[in-house]
Amino acid sequence: MTRRAILYLLAGLIMSGCVRLPSPGQPVTYHVLTDPGPIVPAPRTLAGTLLVREMDAPGLYQASNPVFSRSPGTRTYYQFARWSEPPAKRLTWLIRQRLEAARAFEVVSPLGGGVRGDYQLNTRLVDFYHDASMPPGVALLIVEAELVRRSDARLIARRMFVGQAPAATHDAQGATDAMGRAANQVIDDLALWLPQAAAGEGR
C-alpha cells in the first residue's frame, strides 16, 4: 500500500512538468477613492455631536473590486483593479472628513468611538458602478441617508442622493476617476442637506 502511493506520487510529479498554468494577464492596480472638495463652510454650527455610522453596503460592494455593468441589471467586478479599501468604508470616512471640515456640527465622530452623540447619520450604499454599456461610460453612485435624534430615537429626515459623472476613458482608470467625481457630488449634497435637516428645515 505504501509502495503504491509512492509510485502514484512520482508519476504525478513527472506529469506535472508537462502542464503550464496561465500567467496573470496584467498587473493589479489599486485605486484610491478621493474627495477633492470644494469644502464649503456651513452657515452656522449646530450644537451637539453627530455620530457617523459606517455605511451599510450589499455583499457585492464589500469586495475591493470596482464594479462595472455592460447590460442593464448586471454587475461585474473589474479583474485587475482594486480599491484601496472597500468603497462603503471609504465613503464613510470621506463623509466624516467633509462634515468636520465644514463645521456643520460641534463634534463629528464615528459611531462606537466612545463619544456620546446627539444625532446619528445612517447611510446605505445602494449602487456604485461604472455603466460601460456605451463607451466610455458613466459612473453612478446612489446613497440613502437618514438623520436620527438619539435622545428619543426619532427619525428626523431621510433622503436619497444620486451622483453621476462621465468616464474619460473606457477602462478601470477612467471608471474609478469618474466614480470619485460622482462620490464628490453626493458628499456635496449630503453636507448641504444635513445641517438643514438637523435644524428641522429639510423635512
Binding site: 461585474t76 473589474y78 460601460a132
Partner: peptide, 10 residues
C-alpha cells in the same frame, strides 16, 4: 467575458 473594459487576458 468577465474581463472589465480595458482588461485583457494573457
Amino acid at each position: 467575458e468577465e474581463l472589465g473594459p480595458g482588461e485583457v487576458r494573457p
